[in-house]
Nucleic acid binder design. Structure first.
Lengths: 102, 102
DNA sequence: CGCGCCACTTGCATTTTGCAAGTATCACCG
DNA sequence: CGGTGATACTTGCAAAATGCAAGTGGCGCG
């Protein structure tokens, strides 16, 4: 068992395959604050409704988030463990985008 | 003056504005290994040549990388300080994509 | 002077994204 | 029971991004 290996480019490619599409990472970031409903995500992010539906379907399939039925025609989207594991990456990226490098 | 604030979503959006386009982060990741020439990037990543040209132009404009003239019709692309600051984010993302969450 | 290497550009097909309007379901009010 | 509003989407079509393949231009070398 090798102890310390650095991650090859294909690992990054694998990550981008899941969260590299437009809006995907922003949706996950919003969900880090806790479960949100469809309409909340739409209004908060300004993402087109068809894109939001598509992304939520893809991210659910990828095991990043899950649907929680709330009431009759109301449900919430919440990150799975795999989704929550993106917090560090999102944090780093946000710090970089904000100016003070981290 | 608040000492510890968490980065708002718009910071992430700003980051994605720069490195959110297809291939952009993979190009930067490849450049973390040191300066590379156009043909090297193309062959290593399998990125279409017109996309590579477009991304390199955008990333240069954004201050992420710079062109170094080597010889007559040969030049290398190298990360700037701002580009190098992406290492942590890329690392996190690659670890996530690789399976062992970090 | 012609050949090949290198860094691109150009033209066009395909895919993704965005906008706007429509559909489906159910609670609530009367 | 029927109308209204809220919620979560779907659908049709236009615009933009992406990808493929072939072409362009500079220069060293023989």
């Amino acid at each position: 068992m090798s102890g310390s290996d650095d991650a090859p480019t294909s690992d990054l490619a694998a990550a981008l395959d899941v969260i590299g599409a437009r809006w995907a990472l922003l949706i996950v970031a919003r969900l880090l604050d806790g479960p949100q409903r469809y309409g909340d995500l739409q209004r908060d992010l300004g993402v087109p409704t068809n894109m939001l539906a598509t992304r939520l379907r893809e991210l659910e399939t990828a095991g990043v988030l899950a649907r929680l039925p709330l009431r009759h025609n109301t449900r919430a989207y919440a990150l799975t463990e795999r989704g929550l594991a993106l917090r560090d990456a999102i944090d780093s990226l946000a710090r970089w985008g904000g100016g003070r490098e981290g």
